[in-house]
Structures are given as C-alpha cells and as structure tokens.
Amino acid sequence: MPSTLRRTTITAAFAVLILYGGLILSLGWFLEGAVFRGMLFSERSLFAIRLSLITATISSCMALIIAIPAAYALSRYRFWGSEAINTLLEFPIIVSPAALGAILLMFFSSPLGEWVQAHTVRFVFGFAGILLAQFVTVLGVAVRLLKASFDEIPVEIEVIARTLGATPRYAFFTVVLPLARRGILAAFVLSWAKALGEFGATVTLAGTMAMRTETLPVAIYLRLASADIEGTAALILIMVGIGLCSLYLARRLLQRSVDANRMG
C-alpha cells in the first residue's frame, strides 16, 4: 500500500505539472494557426529569435569565462573580501531585474559610465546593452552554481595530482575542470535559460526598439502592449518551444556527461 508521504509528494509534483502545463495549454485558446505560422516566419519574429539566441549564448559564455575562475577561488581560498563577494552573488536576485537595469542606466549616465561608453562601445539602447544586462543578471547565479560544483571536488585529489608532479595550473586543467564538467554544463544551461528569458534589465538599459533591441521577451511585451493577443500567444509559444527544447537537449547532454564521468 503506497505510503502517505509517497502520495503527498507525488501530488505536489503533479501540481507543478498542472500549473505550468495548464498555463502553457491555456495559450491555445487565443492561438490561431494562420497567425502562428505568420508569426513564426515573419522577419521581425525571426530577428527576435536570432537576437535572443545570439545574446543569450554570448552573455552566458562571457559569464562562464569569469565565473569558472571566480568560483574556483571562492571554493578553494580564503582571502580578503571573499565573504563580501560570496554575499554579493545574490545581488542580481535580490534587486528586481528592472532595478538592475536602472542601476546600469544610472552608471552609464555618470561621468565614469559616459567615459566608458565613449572609449569602448555604446551600451545604452544598443546590442551591447542587451549583452551587458543579461551578463550582469546571470553572472552571480553562474558563480554560485559553479562554486557548489567545485566544493564537491575534494581538495585532496588536487594534492595527489601535485605530488605526481602537476603544477596547480596543470592540476586545475587536467583534474578539476574535467571533474567539474557536469557542474559547468549545468551552470551554462541555467545561465543561458535565464539570459533567454531576461526582460527587465534589458528593457531598461537597451530599450524596446523594433528590429534593433527586440529580443523575444521584448517582442512579447510589445505585442501585448499593442493589444495583439493572438500574436502575443504565438510568440510566447515560440519562446516556450525554443526554451524547453534547449533545456531538454541540455538535460540529455548532462546525463551523457554523468555517464561519461562514471565511465571515463
């Protein structure tokens, strides 16, 4: 006879499915085949899809480039400021995305920010602004996830590598990174998904210019603002499709990575 715990927990799991699945299915009420097909292949939608995929991929790659060494340092060393950094990792989660975008906008309105824009690239209302907004949003999460992954790798295994003649750098690349492979993949996938759905910071910093800074979430917002419910539903479904397919693919990859770690 199934236990009460089993029944209760499985019911909770199905509640998740009913909530999210129901919400997605409810889009069908407003969906029209012709509108959906038209939306899927329209130039403006394709631009938004392409822009979202490109910016989410670049910003999450950039986040990992910083997050991997930073997370390793936070996992392995105690240094001045490490506690403060650890606390600041949740900063993008605590402040709302719009506030984060506002902070970025205010920074670029300051003399230092203006100097940065004058001497590098234009962030406000530009492609670089989308990248920066997504990068700032996902960096903290990426570091947090990777730190947890490095924490799981015993320091002792690096010590063994070093007694075998490896320098700290060689041990990092040949032992630590391969063992953290799964965590790195997971951090990338979650960062990418978060960047793909990022709206608040992007819209504040990069604006809502059609065919320029119009990512998928921005496109959805613009459709809704112009009371185009069918178009909004179609775009949301496109976004859900891309996101879920990518996450499914990533889960498969992760599983293969786990098996590979076990096997090799």
Binding site: E156, I160, R162, T163, L164, L179
Partner: peptide, 17 residues
C-alpha cells in the same frame, strides 16, 4: 610538486575520469 614525495591516501586515490 617539487618536494619529491609520493602520496597514497586512504580514500579518493584515483582520478575518476
């Protein structure tokens, strides 16, 4: 790495990958 020691601990000996 320059000390000239070999080291065999109780656990975690081999690189799993």
């Amino acid at each position: 790495e320059s000390r000239g020691f070999g080291y065999v601990p109780q656990h975690l000996g081999l690189f799993p990958h």
